[in-house]
Every structure is written in C-alpha cells, then in structure tokens.
Design a protein around this nucleic acid. Structure first.
Length: 520
DNA sequence: CACTTCGGAACTTAAAAATT
DNA sequence: ATTTTTAAGTTCCGAAGTGT
C-alpha cells in the first residue's frame, strides 16, 4: 500500500533510474492483449511501431462485478417517470441478492390495460415482489447505478483517453477467449449459473395472453403481475413486473428454446402472427434443447476465434426489385418472414458471444417479445402483406432522401436485416453495397460485439416506446478489414400503423478516430 | 537472437467495514 | 464523516516458447 503511494507520488519529481514508469491510464486493445506496456497516446507508441496505428483503440475493460449484474444499466428519466431497460441479473443470483422489488416501468401515457403473463409466477417459489420506490437498496438509487454516473465518475478522477470507452469497446473474437478466462474464479460462478438459467429445460408453463378490450397497445411492457395490480404502490394502469423472477426466466426459456430449437414457425400459415415474428411459444416446451447435461456452454466462435465470418449461404434473398411505388404494390404478395432473421440472430449471438452477452441479448429480446406478440397476434395475413408493402414503399422514399443527406445512413428491418445503405455509410465502413445488400446482412454484423449487445438493448427499450423515436448512442462499426470505427450512432424506429417497429433508420458519424489522427 | 505469448506480481479503484 | 480493509479489476514485467 505504502509502496504504491510512493511510486505514484515520485513519478514526476525524481529522475531516479529505479523509478518505475507511470503506467498507462488505459492500455490499448493491442497492448492489452499482448500484455505489453502501452501509453496514453492514441495510437500508442507500440502500435505506431508495429504499424497498428489505425486500429489502436482503447482496450476492453470489464464492468466491475457489482455493475455487471446490475439490471439498472440504462435509465432515463422522462417527466419524472422512469424507464429501465437492459439486462436483468441472472435470476438465480437475483433471487438471493435482491430483496428489493423490481422497478416498475411506467408507460408514458395510460394505455388500455393489457396483460400477457407467462403462467404461474412462482416457479421457483419466489413470491412476486411489489414495486416500490421507498426502498433504499443501493440498486434502486439512481445515481449509483446509472451507466452515466459511472461514466461521470471516471471522468472525475482520471479522464479516459477515449470518451466512448465506458460505453462500448472493441471486441475481437479471439479476445473473447481471454476475457472469458481473465478472472476465472468469480466468472465461472456467474457463467455456471447463467448456463443453468439458459439451458436447463424450463418448467412447463402455458403462456396466456390477456387482452383488454381486444385492443393491443404500444405499451413498452405488458406483463402484469396480478398481485401487484391492486397494490397501493402499483401504477394505475400498467404496472410491470417483468424481467424479474420467474416470469423472466420463463420468458427467457421460451424465447430461447423456441428460437433455438423450433423448426421454422413460418409454416404455420396465415393468421398466425406469432409465426411471423418468429418469437412464438408454439410448442415451446417440446424440443427442449438437449443441453441439460452441459449447462456451461462453450461458445464455439468466441472461444477459438475461428469461425470468423461464416456467412449464411442465404437461400432465397427476397430482393426488393420494385423500384416504383406501383411495382411495390403489385409485387409484394406475401408477408416478409422475420422468423429467419430472429433465428439467425440467436445463432449468430450464440456462436460468437460470451455468455453474459448472450444473456443480455436474450433478455433484450424477451423484453419486447410480449408486446410484439400482443400486437401481432391479431393481424391477418393481409395486414402482414400490407405492412411489407409499407416497408418497401418506405424504403423507396428513404432511398431518395438518403441520397441527399451527407450523413452515413443505413436502414434495416426490425430483425436487423439491412435494407438500404447510403453511399456515405459505405465510405465510412468500407463495405460495398453488394456485400451488405447482395446477401442478407444484419446491422449487428457490422458492429463489434459490445455494440451489438447495446444496440439490441436499446432497441428493446424503445421498440414500443412511442414517446420517443430516436435513440442516441455510440457504437463501433467493423470494417471488412476488422478495423473498428468508433461512431456516434443515432437510430430512429419507424413504426407501422399497428405501432410495430417496421424500419430502423440509423445515422452514424465517425468519432474519436479523426480526433486521434488530428493529434498526430 | 528477435519476436511472441502469457502467468502472475504490482498496481488501481471503489465498495464495505471499521473507526472516530 | 473519515479512514481502513477488502475485493475485484487493470497494467505490464519478465520467463518461457517459437521462429529464423
């Protein structure tokens, strides 16, 4: 302890040869990976020497453990009301850890009461807890757990070299391996639990969907725990007890098991809006992943860094040939199948992400799934076809618009499938139009892992939040060369007439790197 | 002999516990 | 309220391995 003070205090008043050099406040990705001395400049000296200047970005830092399992990662306060989104802790840990109730999600405006509840609440014998703000549990106190506060704090003491570093970071596949074992001990505990929560067959539950007035609403969340409905602490119309406790688990199970195992639900035919989104429970307790034996999954892609970019040999790319409104209306004869996209997402994530990232994405998906189902369930095939026409028609309009804007822009579907790219985006990312549109490419595939996770979390949080359309954030795009491009990222969710996200328009501008180059 | 990899010591940070 | 302890994370030294 005294050692360390000595070292740091002597750093600039003493020329002694024995003096230890000051450590870099933040090692770059390459140095971190190589366990070598870095410095605070970007690109750092070592990277310059090794010709890695272009990709010298801040290394990844793990979120502190106490923050890792915080489910209040992203808060927003809007009109004194309070949304949360993002990763809930591993339910198993959570059970013991959080005596405190989940934070209710307030909808921005009263909407018709609607409930979807995934069966019995106490699968694991935990009683649903009532929401309350009076609790003084640290986890419920805003400033402590808000991402931003962490951010600010770190600014307070030592200014991070990269302003975007706390939010996103470059995550190369091979590095996942190291990450995974970086701190084996406490991690393995976490991973084991997660393994269980994700891959052990869930108890059987029937999902019931309650609608109010037969009226689907655009409420961000619609799980209502009946026991909280009449509780004084509960909110007048739509209280949420979701993402916590057993429901969360069930939903997670269902979404995962369904998405991972079910054969294509596409064949279910018309009137089954469920199939359309590919996130249905349709026999979800049936082919219950054979994984029960090995709860700890090995992430094939992530662990060996091997299967880098095995592209799906996309079967039938439904190209949007129509380039006039007339064509759109004439040519679209079937609904667009989103199922494939969601399945692909799950496989993609499974293949190249670390356990906790998988978990976060699955949770994010589970967050909007109920709303999705509620909205989609009473759509007819015709509606779906109509929506697809709308989509394609919209794309046509965007196409014109985008050609005039100078901002790198991409438009993708709710599954992430890229539908339109501006030339500035191509310049920025160095992908060719053909690479992105020629075969189905998903927006998260051109992001680094961390950014992909964050994107899905943010999308989940805003998918059904009609009070705001745009989300500002940052993300790191990956060039074909593997070079990360840190960007400011703003995306806008365009919804269809049923309030279902239809298209997402993303604007990206390069960040940080140009600043670094200017420093040279 | 140069270069790479990586175990683990040294250091940093921040929460929790102890002390005033 | 302040200080100390504890726990968990990060950096990078230097030993060991690999290539030429």
């Amino acid at each position: 302890m005294s050692e360390s003070t000595q070292t740091s205090s002597s750093e600039h008043n003493d020329t002694g040869t024995s003096m230890r050099r000051k450590k870099a406040t933040r090692a770059c990705f390459h140095c971190q990976k190589a366990h070598l001395t870095c410095d605070d400049s970007r690109p750092c000296q070592r990277c310059i020497k090794r010709d890695l200047a272009a990709s010298c970005t801040d290394g990844i830092r793990k979120k502190a453990k106490y923050l890792q399992d915080s489910h209040y990662d992203v808060y927003e306060i809007i009109d004194n009301k309070f949304y949360y989104n993002n990763s809930t802790p591993n339910p198993i840990e959570q059970q013991t850890k959080y005596q405190s109730p989940p934070t209710p999600i307030l909808t921005h405006s009263p909407t018709p009461l609607q409930q979807i509840h995934p069966g019995p609440f106490s699968t694991y014998n935990e009683t649903p807890v009532l929401p309350s703000f009076t609790n003084n549990n640290r986890q419920l106190m805003l400033p402590k757990t808000v991402d931003e506060s962490v951010y600010l704090k770190s600014f307070g003491r030592s200014i991070p070299t990269s302003p975007i570093s706390p939010l996103s970071s470059h995550f190369a596949d091979d590095y996942n391996y190291q990450q995974l074992f970086y701190s084996r001990q406490h991690r393995s505990h976490y991973i084991n639990n997660l393994g269980q929560s994700l891959f052990i067959a869930p108890p059987q539950t029937n999902q019931t969907v309650f609608m109010h007035n037969g009226f689907p609403s655009a409420t961000p969340n619609n799980i209502v725990d009946p026991s909280t409905l009449f509780a004084p602490e509960s909110y007048p119309l739509a209280t949420v007890n979701y993402g916590f406790g057993s429901e969360a688990v069930n939903l997670e199970y269902s979404i995962l098991s369904n998405m991972l195992s079910s054969a294509s639900t596409e064949s279910l035919g018309p009137h089954n809006g469920f199939a359309e989104i590919g996130m249905v429970d349709q026999n979800w307790q049936q082919p219950q992943l054979q994984r029960t034996t090995s709860p700890v999954m090995t992430t094939p892609g992530g662990l060996n860094g091997g299967s880098t970019s095995q592209k799906r040999e996309n079967s039938g790319k439904k190209k949007m040939s129509s380039n006039t409104p007339e064509n759109v209306y004439a040519n679209v004869k079937t609904p667009f199948s989103y199922t494939e996209g969601f399945h692909y997402l799950v496989n993609w994530v499974k293949e190249r992400m670390e356990k906790d990232h998988i978990e976060r994405i699955v949770r994010a998906l589970a967050t909007f799934r109920p709303s999705f189902i509620a909205l989609i369930m009473n759509l007819t095939e015709e509606d779906l076809i109509f929506m697809e026409k709308c989509f394609q028609r919209t794309i046509l309009e965007f196409e014109k618009l985008i050609s005039f804007s100078g901002t790198p822009t991409v438009v993708w579907r709710r599954t992430g499938e890229i539908a339109l790219v501006g030339k500035e985006f191509l310049l920025l990312t160095q992908w060719t139009k053909d690479q992105l549109l020629g075969k189905t490419t998903y927006i998260y595939e051109v992001m680094d892992n961390q950014s992909a996770v964050e994107y899905w979390e943010k999308f989940a949080a805003h998918a059904f939040d009609t009070s705001r359309q745009s989300v500002m954030t940052t993300c790191i795009l990956m060039r074909p060369s593997g070079m990360p491009v840190p960007c400011a990222f703003c995306f806008t969710i365009k919804r269809d007439i049923f309030d279902i996200p239809l298209a997402i328009v993303g604007n990206l501008t390069m960040k940080e790197l140009d600043a670094q180059y200017r420093m040279l």
